[in-house]
Amino acid sequence: MMFIKSANYTAERPWGAMDIANMNGITTRLHWTDQPYKWHINDGEEIFVVLDGKVEMRYRENGLEKSNLMVVGDIFYAAVGTEHVAHPVGEARILVIEKEGSV
């Protein structure tokens, strides 16, 4: 059992993570960042939840780049093949649920 105060979590580097659980190959991780990630496509589905801060989620749909500003409590679901990149606005803490070993 564990209790986590996500608002207090920081990492040594952007996108550093605390591993919370691995349930049959599906990981749940708490990330801290103040820098953008990289454009990527996961080899599985991804759930991305903003716990603290704001994140501009950029994604490509039919070859066009789009974006959505996410705030605390917002959830982004990326289906297999969804090209996306997260750009925090300042510091952000994010809960990510995805297949173990995903980018």
Rank of each mutant, 00 (worst) to 15 (best):
N22W: 05
W32A: 01
T10G: 02
E56F: 00
E12D: 14
K54F: 01
Y9I: 03
H31N: 09
E45F: 11
E12N: 15
Q35N: 04
Y59C: 02
K54T: 01
E45L: 04
N42K: 06
W15P: 02
V49S: 07
T10S: 12
A21M: 11
I4L: 14
G44A: 07
V55P: 00
I47L: 14
M57G: 01
I26K: 14
Y9D: 01
G44D: 12
H40P: 03
T10I: 15
T10W: 12
S6P: 04
K38S: 06
I20N: 04
N8W: 09
M23D: 13
K54Y: 00
N8L: 09
G44Q: 11
D19Y: 04
A17R: 13
G25D: 05
N8V: 00
E45Y: 14
E45T: 11
F48K: 05
E46T: 09
Y37D: 04
K5L: 05
E45N: 10
K38T: 12
I20V: 15
V49G: 01
E46W: 14
P36I: 04
F48E: 02
G16N: 09
Q35C: 01
A17C: 05
K54A: 00
W32Y: 14
D19K: 12
E45G: 05
T10Q: 15
G44F: 10
R58C: 00
V55A: 00
G53Q: 09
E12W: 07
N22I: 10
Q35F: 03
T33H: 04
D52M: 11
A11T: 07
P36H: 08
D43F: 09
Y9W: 15
A11K: 09
Y9N: 02
V49W: 10
H31F: 15
M23I: 15
A21W: 13
D19S: 09
N22A: 04
V50T: 08
F48Q: 03
N8E: 14
T10Y: 14
Y59K: 01
N24A: 08
M23H: 14
I47C: 07
W15F: 07
L51V: 11
T10D: 11
I26A: 05
G25W: 11
Q35G: 00
K5V: 05
T27K: 13
D52K: 15
I41E: 06
I26C: 05
I4M: 06
R58L: 01
N42R: 08
G25Y: 10
A17F: 15
S6W: 13
E12L: 13
H31L: 12
I47Q: 10
L30N: 08
G25F: 08
S6N: 07
L51P: 08
I41H: 02
A17T: 10
N24E: 10
I26F: 11
I26E: 11
T27Y: 05
K54D: 00
E45S: 08
W15S: 02
I41Y: 02
Y37W: 10
A7F: 12
M18A: 08
P36Q: 06
M23V: 15
G16S: 07
N24D: 14
G53T: 05
